[in-house]
Structures are given as structure tokens and as C-alpha cells.
Design a binder for these strands. Structure first.
Length: 103
DNA sequence: GGTCTGACTAAAT
DNA sequence: GATTTAGCCAGAC
């Protein structure tokens, strides 16, 4: 019995994010049908299941808003860099290069 | 058991 | 064009 279908959908979608790609809370929320539930997406990722690459989910600016909650402010960034994700001068992911939009 | 906050975003003013 | 409000779901107080 899942905590809620919303959570499962979030997890399932994030799990589909390919290696070296990132997506945004807004895109995930939109894909789920509720474009305003971006907060819940973040809250769902707060549970941080091992199967879900939460480090590939960033806010719409590409900033690693959830890095602090991920276990360390540098863990998320370092992990993304290990996947070949590029960052700009402001420490934000280059969405134009790595943004992955769910179908 | 009601209220507020939170890894956010978009629309309205 | 910049700021404010509203909306979403779940958990914590």
C-alpha cells in the first residue's frame, strides 16, 4: 500500500530520468497532471528512496535547491558532475544542455 | 484536530 | 516589469 499515488508517480517519473540528464519539479508536477503541486514533488523526494535519483531533480532555474536535504550541499552537485552534467558560474545546471522533459 | 510550513511554479495584480 | 497571491499534498507542531 503506497503512501499515495502521487508519490508513486513522482518516483516513477524521476526514475525515468536518463543518466546525465536533469528535470525540474514543475515538469514532473505538470506531467502528473497537477502543475501546481511542484511542492509535493519536492516533499515526495524528501523521502529520498534509493531507487529515485533525486539528485537529477532541480528547480526551474537549474539550482540544486534540495542539495541541503540530500545529505550534503556538495553531494548532489558532485554526483551530477560525475554524470557529466555541466554547471554554470552560479552553480546551476545548464538546463539548455541537460534538461530532460518527461513525455 | 486545526494550522503552518515545505526540495516550487505559474498566474494575477 | 516587478511583486504578491494562490494552489497543490503530506507531514510536523
Amino acid at each position: 500500500m503506497p503512501a499515495s499515488d502521487f508519490y508513486e508517480r513522482v518516483y516513477d517519473l524521476v526514475r525515468l530520468v536518463p543518466f546525465g540528464r536533469v528535470t525540474t519539479y514543475g515538469h514532473v508536477a505538470r506531467h502528473l497532471g497537477t502543475g501546481q503541486s511542484a511542492r509535493v514533488v519536492g516533499w515526495a523526494l524528501n523521502q529520498c528512496p534509493p531507487d529515485v535519483p533525486a539528485h537529477r531533480v532541480v528547480n526551474r532555474f537549474g539550482a540544486l535547491s534540495g542539495a541541503i536535504h540530500f545529505g550534503g550541499p556538495l553531494v548532489m552537485e558532485d554526483r551530477l558532475r560525475s554524470e557529466g552534467v555541466a554547471f554554470d558560474e552560479e552553480g546551476r545546471v545548464v538546463l539548455t544542455e541537460h534538461l530532460w522533459v518527461p513525455e
